[in-house]
Design a protein around this nucleic acid. Structure first.
Lengths: 334, 334
DNA sequence: AATGAAATTGCAAACGATTGCAGTTTTTCA
DNA sequence: TGAAAAACTGCAATCGTTTGCAATTTCATT
């Protein structure tokens, strides 16, 4: 490995001068600086990250907190976009997660042990003290899809999304609309708010039986909930599912049992994953603007890193767009 | 941050002793060692990764090479499994990729700059000199889904997979079988071999027109290829697609244009992603054993890291399993 | 040419951990 | 009890880079 010292030797200067030249500092003579840079390139020099980190306590490394399995397209896409944003800024991404079996090491510890410049929380158990400690620490942190008081957060506009879905469903002629929601949390809370607000605005009755607790990303649970709803005395004509994945899976179950979508029941998903638009009929759904969320999150985090004093935490919501689809049609018996 | 020195001070010993005690070295007095460990825990000590890396040139960090978008379920799942394996071993994962716009920094450079202990190549342009240089370097590297002479590789058994698919298709009664293959590379080469080998064994004719060049993960291209095949004078009765994702998308296109699957044509996918089994009809496909691939890859890489001398590169293939599905039925006109 | 200011440069001390070597203590055994 | 062996500990150098300070050079100005 080529060291600073090697270049210094080759150029007949000190290591300090080489460091200054390579870092483009103003107090570096531009005649020698050019020569030094040339030699450095020739010799194939690149700085040792560990040494630099040790000295400056900056790692040019961003931590990614992602507890879940990573096979959810929504999160994968988010991670992908984030990576692009951060790589533009010269940062690498490191996945951190408490090792499942040996319970040693909190997130905060893992982050500071590696001198991470910041952490993006894509998916985590937001109620755990561990995550909260990280968010409250001095390490810049941005949270996605969850509102934390006093932290940088980027969320898709779940409330507006639900309201938009409701409007579309209403226009299609539905008045009996059920909502299967996912696990408790910011997302579910906001969607629930949007649901009730939308119902109120449109003058739709929203009986308690039409609000069902379900799970995200769980087709079986979603199907079960729908069957349960269909068995009601006064079944809904349209069901809003927690996410596209569940919805697609549930739809297959329904068809198998002889329930036709949208003939017997209309379905609407959430997320706008690509496969949801490929199945037959394509899902009516609400597509989140993942690229923009990532951009905003990256900007927030980078700002907090570059200027910790000047930065004040902000909470940003990003809107999406409703996609019409064959799973939503006029109800047979309105 | 608590330093080694702080603990040394608190315990009235030298930093060297603390280091030895904490690392459980044999030349450390067990009376004091216990005391030191206790104090360290009390004070909330954890080692500074940068300092340790600088001294030992081991980072406990594995690089992940993943050029593509990360929204392919197959690769996401692979990454997920890998993460689990490596985290068990106490390694973190760092995503490395040439920053797209500023062309500075090869993979090898990025890896050694961060003192990565090893690199797993999940998805990359295997023909690029950059990747080859990395594989040929002294940094332990394991390649997934591509055969590199003299490197550690883990591949799914594409040849056997194709042969198994062919047998199933044959049993269903098909004799005119087309194959849309993906981009050139190890995977495609092996599948092609498997296709021809299977045809030969079963006594199936394999005219050149039935072998179509296509793309992975590209539903539109797949659909187009299928239409092209259907327009042949003697169209095939069954088409093997490059992957599930393409197949699902193409199927929707077909239905839209009035072509019934499997009535008019049988389709078979490849990969076994979850959504492929949720659509209607569920795809006949070949599911790769991703968990096992990850395990093998991790084992290879860890072995190469722990014992670089004793390790000789191996190439491992992992078999999968054929999944029957509604997209494959007996041909109308055999 | 002398002077002071400005521009460069080098010295040396960090950053926090590890480790060979030597020195000290303890243990073992005769 | 004494000497040798074993066990433990500390010193100090080292990993590669950055940076405050001081020293040196360069330059403009009179």
């Amino acid at each position: 490995m080529v060291r600073l010292k090697d270049i210094a030797l080759a150029c007949g200067v000190s290591a300090a001068t080489v460091s200054r030249a390579l870092n483009g500092r103003t107090d570096s003579g531009n005649k020698t600086a050019a020569e030094i840079c040339r030699t450095a390139k020739e010799m194939g020099y690149f700085p040792n990250a560990a040494a630099r980190t040790l000295k400056t306590s900056r790692s040019n490394n961003i931590g990614i907190l992602y507890e879940d399995r990573m096979d959810h397209e929504y999160f994968s896409a988010l991670l992908n976009e984030l990576r692009q944003c951060f790589e533009e800024g010269g940062y690498d991404l490191t996945l951190i997660r408490r090792s499942a079996h040996s319970e040693e090491g909190t997130y905060l510890e893992r982050a500071s042990r590696r001198s991470l410049d910041g952490v993006a929380v894509i998916q985590a158990d937001f109620n755990s003290a561990d995550v909260m400690r990280l968010a409250a620490s001095s390490i810049p942190t941005v949270i996605l899809d969850h509102a934390y008081e006093g932290s940088d957060c980027v969320m898709c506009d779940n409330q507006a999304g639900m309201e938009e879905i409701l409007r579309a469903v209403y226009e299609a002629g539905h008045r009996k609309i059920a909502f299967i929601r996912g696990e408790r949390g910011t997302v579910t809370r906001e969607r629930t708010n949007g649901f009730y607000k939308g119902c109120a605005e449109l003058g739709i009755r929203a009986p308690g039986a039409y609000m069902v607790d379900g799970h995200f990303h769980d087709p079986a649970a979603c199907a079960e909930a729908i069957f349960h709803l269909l068995a009601l005395e006064e079944p809904p004509t349209c069901v809003l599912c927690p996410d596209d994945f569940s919805c697609v899976g549930a739809m297959a179950d329904l068809e198998e049992k002889g329930v036709n979508v949208p003939g017997d029941i209309s379905l609407v998903g959430y997320d706008g994953i690509r496969l949801a638009r490929m199945v037959k009929p394509p899902l009516a759904t609400y597509r989140q603007d993942i690229a923009r969320m990532a951009r905003e999150a990256a900007d927030l985090l980078l700002e907090a890193i570059e200027d910790p004093e000047g930065h004040t935490p902000r909470q940003i919501t990003v809107g999406g767009v409703f996609l019409r689809g064959g799973t939503l049609s006029a109800p047979k018996h309105p």
